[in-house]
Design a protein around this nucleic acid. Sequence first.
DNA 1: GATGAATGAGTTTTCATTCAT
DNA 2: GATGAATGAAAACTCATTCAT
Lengths: 214, 214, 214, 214
Amino acid sequence: MAGKREQNREQNRLALIEAVLDSVAEKGISETSVSEIIQRAGLSRGMIHLHFGGKDNLVQAAGHHSSQEYYDGLEDLLAQAGDSPQERIEMIVRGDLGERVLNQRNVSIWYAFRGEARNRSAIAAFSDTRDARLRNMVLSAFTRIARDMNMTDAEAARDATHGLLALLEGMWTDYLLHPDRFDRDEAMRITFRFLAAMFPSYFTLKGAVVQPQT
Amino acid sequence: MAGKREQNREQNRLALIEAVLDSVAEKGISETSVSEIIQRAGLSRGMIHLHFGGKDNLVQAAGHHSSQEYYDGLEDLLAQAGDSPQERIEMIVRGDLGERVLNQRNVSIWYAFRGEARNRSAIAAFSDTRDARLRNMVLSAFTRIARDMNMTDAEAARDATHGLLALLEGMWTDYLLHPDRFDRDEAMRITFRFLAAMFPSYFTLKGAVVQPQT
Amino acid sequence: MAGKREQNREQNRLALIEAVLDSVAEKGISETSVSEIIQRAGLSRGMIHLHFGGKDNLVQAAGHHSSQEYYDGLEDLLAQAGDSPQERIEMIVRGDLGERVLNQRNVSIWYAFRGEARNRSAIAAFSDTRDARLRNMVLSAFTRIARDMNMTDAEAARDATHGLLALLEGMWTDYLLHPDRFDRDEAMRITFRFLAAMFPSYFTLKGAVVQPQT
Amino acid sequence: MAGKREQNREQNRLALIEAVLDSVAEKGISETSVSEIIQRAGLSRGMIHLHFGGKDNLVQAAGHHSSQEYYDGLEDLLAQAGDSPQERIEMIVRGDLGERVLNQRNVSIWYAFRGEARNRSAIAAFSDTRDARLRNMVLSAFTRIARDMNMTDAEAARDATHGLLALLEGMWTDYLLHPDRFDRDEAMRITFRFLAAMFPSYFTLKGAVVQPQT
DNA sequence: GATGAATGAGTTTTCATTCAT
DNA sequence: GATGAATGAAAACTCATTCAT
């Protein structure tokens, strides 16, 4: 079996990354030691330096991996979304606030990495390109809606984009600080309330208005 | 002179706290070592244990200090605000997005502590009690507005509170990740756009509507 | 073809030995790691243990190889030398200070092994047995000269041997410490000056006096 | 006692250096680990990094120290030497081959440091200035002798200097490789034989001719 | 009270060796 | 036979804390 070793190699790389993410989520970055990582991964000490050349690189790779997973998940969802702009936006909101993405582990990891300038900037390069794509998707959806509504306010679509994404970010922070009392439905309702207030015939408290607006 | 000693004591305590905050802002929590702190403060190694009994306590005190400063600043602003609920809310928004509060140092510190908060409950603590006070101020303002508007939706005020605070949080995250391209006026406009959409006769893109609504 | 395999085997052994010598010359013994060696040799990690049973054995073999090369070269030269004792001595001097033998790589290797020799008796060993042969060649040449000169001083030949070899050693050290400013001709002249001073009618500043002394 | 701590600090620095030199002499550089050093010095692990910032720096400091001791010792001797050039040269020879300087420990250390390019070049900078001073002392002594002898050969004094120092180096190598069979008197006799051969009325097999030469 | 040299537990890193493929 | 991923003992280094001065 020729590929087995190669396959195992990749498996171990991934096991280390997952171990880092688990540890970061549970104990925080500063308590994520090499010993902690290898114990969780059930691998040997030397492996980290073999595959990543050092702990720091591994931690960064883990940050990269986590960010990649987030964007991949979101883009998967969008591929399934309907064509109307409001449906696409609804999909993003539901994705971003859904259990698969917004959960204790992810939120802890996300904030842990953001907490230190070092990791922040290391991940930023990659994250920003993906973020820009997401931002543009939202922006083009809002632009279509604004055009449909014959809105004269040139900044409305851009502000709505910026505002929606900021609101979703804020929900994540909420979750981080109060995971016990966080209410997913409430977060969703608040978000749609914001959308409904800005684009009344396109959104309701429950989500997108799917029927075409006459 | 006993008073002078006491005064010096307090000065040193503060110098250490500020040194921690500077270091946390610049290097992050995990690179904020005792050596880093005393070098910045220009004080001796033993000082930390003399005044705080250990590094962890000092870091915690620094976090506490930082959050206290934030809420103190906000309350100062509120003391100057008009009586109307929309003015009080405007004051909070302007305070939260103003230069004095929303700047690189503060944002870095805030996120650094949050990144570790999950694991160090001691750090998490100070974020909470005060948080409730701000939340209640906003909630009571929105409740008054909702009552004025004869809103039937029982959750509107609570949702608006939650939404506004989340939006502001999101703006902070924006600033954290892209301090260079952050536009304070845009953030303000977006926030008021959200408020204006929900409470049209109380807010405009520019801020609170101060005149009484007939 | 069985012979080809055998040939390849020998090729790999040699490649490893040369890689060790290159690394020792450039980086020193303590920085000559297995990784360094296999990278230079372009062979696999396991090869070292396959052929030599471990790194230490390989390093020792490399030292042995290097010293063998030195003595082989010297004996080649002597085979070409004239019969007279002064010619044989001249040959040794020219060989020892010539480019083929006295060059940066060799000197670095030589001193690197000597630096560790005291502690690793295995390394010390190969420096010794061969050394005796060289010493005896020189000694017998000087003994013949001393007898020819009717020297009464019983120790003269032995002292001359010891002195000449020490002088040559000293020249190597000179080269080691200042390869840039080392002057091969000067080294040669000094050596022959020493010989000419001790055995005036057998040596001049230029080398051996070849004509028979009446 | 104000200076006691400072004094202790210096004592510990020195203890570490001596421990390194002992270990290098006995076990060689590659087996001189931090654990080995602190055990010999009876000090704590952290001390090395406190005083020297790392093992490498300590090892280099030790090399520096050893070299300094050598030159200091030699210069002390010269201060006691007579005025005549032959007496000064005799002093250098006796110093260099005497027990205080030429002993197992020193020779092992000297060659260990020379064995690796890294240490060699690190010490070279300092060593070379001192070496140049020594070399000049010898050169000026030989120059005076050559002038006294009305020697026409312009290079004689320079060659004698170079040759003498090379010969002494060679004796050290001898000692390194065969500490058991090394004979200090023989080394001395050979060296003076070389000097006597070149400057007959100034040196004998026993040393300098002190009486003025008519 | 203040200092900063000293400690040593705990962390990251290196690297010769092993062994499944 | 050859490979190179995997191992883990041992190495270097960091750093909060202590305590003699």
